[in-house]
Structure formats: structure tokens, C-alpha cells
């Protein structure tokens, strides 16, 4: 079966620093795929390459069989890849509902003319957007907070709002960049259930996360990066046994 997303020999350097070196990996449809590695290993860089924020120096990104390596970020979103950000990037001064409505952008089409005339189809589309945004908020448990400003939400809810905003784009592939960062164990538990529910909606998930129990409990497949190179890939059980992974995280034994 062809993979939903495939990275083929991705290499990217910033000046003299090679952030990713010949990284190849496959994201299988319908699975939860995780990316782990020590700080600075290049995990977020991979997300930025996939979503078109960075263009790789070498290598290709294939999504649903098509090369999207040099495509603009907004077009990649329209193809069905949505993401959250490691350092929360909400539209702070807009309401929670408006944040999620903006997530519906690429699947709606009313423009300037529609805004001024508010023809029948524009109103219909707007109602549809509102309904879809509301459903996305329900999935992450924020349905009652639609009218609040995003900046007034507590931290954990801001992280969930980012997920709702990405879900509103109706993605095939959802990239979550450290969704559990800064959450307490209880919030992490809720988040884990949420991610599983999203997978059941037939959305493939790619996850960057530092919390090992979170990753190991949730993932179907784990890839490990260290210093910009992929050092291992496999099921959580295989990764846990892999000597190179243990070495990357805990260091070498002194001979």
C-alpha cells in the first residue's frame, strides 16, 4: 500500500548547519505516527518542510502520490495537511469561534464580492462554516467557549483550540507539534483520548512529542531522529529495545 505521506532523502541546511540529513520516512494512512528525538534533532524542521514553510535543499515530499516539495504553504493546506504549532500561534484577539472558522478557509470560497453582497449562497456557506467550526470545538471540548477571546483561555485549552482550528480544515493528515507540552497528567489523559477519537474520524496523525509514555501508549509507528538523522523506525516496542535510541537518549557506557 502506498504511504499517505512520504519523505524521500530530505536534506536541509541553514548556512553551514545541516538540520536534516537524508531523512526518509513514511506515514501510513489511518495510523498514529510519532517522531521523537532529543532537543534540536530536527523534528519541528520536518513539520516545517512538510507544510512548505521551509524548502528542503535536497529531497522530495510526496503526499497522496504527488510531489509537494516546492508548493506554497497555503496550497499544501488546501491539499489536506493541517498542523498545530509548538509555540502556540492562535489569533489571540479574535474569538474562539472565529479562530476555528478561519480554519475552514481553504474549503470555502466567498470573497470580497460575497462579503459585501451577502447573496444567498454566501449566507448558506457562512452557516455551514459556523456549524463545522462548532463541531470542531465540540470534539476538543470547547463548544461552550465560542465567544471568548482566544488569549483569555487557559494554556491547556489554547492547545486544544489549536487542534480544533486544524481539524476545521478537514485534513487527511494532521500534524501535532508537541501537543502535550506543559500539560498536567490529567490534561494529557484527556488529550490522548482526543487524539484517538480524531484517528477514528479517519484522519492520519503525525505527532512530535517529548513525553515518552504519551508517545509509546498512543503510537502505531515511531521514528527517531538524532542530530538531523533518522536513527530508527518501528513499533513502540521495537523502539524501546533499540540500542541506538537508548544511546541517543541516555548516552554511551564508558568502556
Amino acid at each position: 500500500m502506498p504511504a499517505l505521506l512520504e519523505l524521500d532523502n530530505i536534506t536541509i541546511s541553514f548556512g553551514g548547519l545541516t538540520a536534516l540529513n537524508r531523512v526518509s520516512l513514511r506515514v501510513e494512512e489511518g495510523k498514529i505516527n510519532s517522531l521523537i528525538g532529543p532537543n534540536g534533532a530536527g523534528k519541528s524542521t520536518i513539520f516545517n518542510v512538510i507544510t512548505g514553510i521551509y524548502t528542503p535543499t535536497y529531497g522530495r515530499v510526496i503526499f497522496q502520490g504527488e510531489d509537494i516539495t516546492r508548493e506554497k504553504p497555503y496550497l499544501i493546506t488546501a491539499r489536506g495537511i493541517a498542523r498545530t504549532f509548538q509555540n502556540i500561534r492562535l489569533f489571540k484577539n479574535l474569538t474562539v469561534l472565529d479562530n476555528v472558522k478561519i480554519g475552514c478557509h481553504s474549503s470555502s470560497r466567498a470573497g470580497l464580492f460575497g462579503a459585501v453582497t451577502r447573496l444567498g449562497w454566501v449566507k448558506r456557506e457562512e452557516r455551514e462554516i459556523t456549524a463545522r467550526a462548532q463541531r470542531a470545538l465540540e470534539i476538543v471540548g470547547l463548544a461552550s467557549k465560542g465567544d471568548e477571546l482566544a488569549k483569555n483561555l487557559p494554556y491547556g485549552e489554547q492547545r486544544r483550540l489549536e487542534i480544533a482550528r486544524a481539524l476545521a480544515a478537514s485534513p487527511r493528515l494532521l500534524l501535532l507539534d508537541e501537543p502535550a507540552a506543559g500539560m498536567n497528567p490529567q490534561e494529557k489523559q484527556t488529550l490522548m483520548e482526543m487524539v484517538q477519537r480524531i484517528r477514528e474520524m479517519n484522519i492520519t496523525i503525525m505527532l512530535v512529542e517529548h513525553d515518552m509514555s504519551f508517545v509509546m501508549n498512543l503510537s502505531d509507528h515511531v521514528d527517531v531522529l538524532n542530530y538531523g538523522e533518522k536513527i530508527a523506525g518501528g513499533t513502540p516496542a521495537e523502539i524501546r529495545q533499540n540500542p541506538r535510541v537508548i544511546e541517543a537518549y541516555l548516552g554511551n557506557e564508558i568502556e
Binding site: I53, F91, L94, R165
Partner: peptide, 11 residues
């Protein structure tokens, strides 16, 4: 509010 996030939302 945030042009990078806006671009990532398909704008």
C-alpha cells in the same frame, strides 16, 4: 494576528 498561522490555515 499571525501571518504564519494564517498561511498554515490556507490563506
Amino acid at each position: 494576528e499571525d501571518d504564519i498561522a494564517a498561511e498554515a490555515m490556507g490563506i
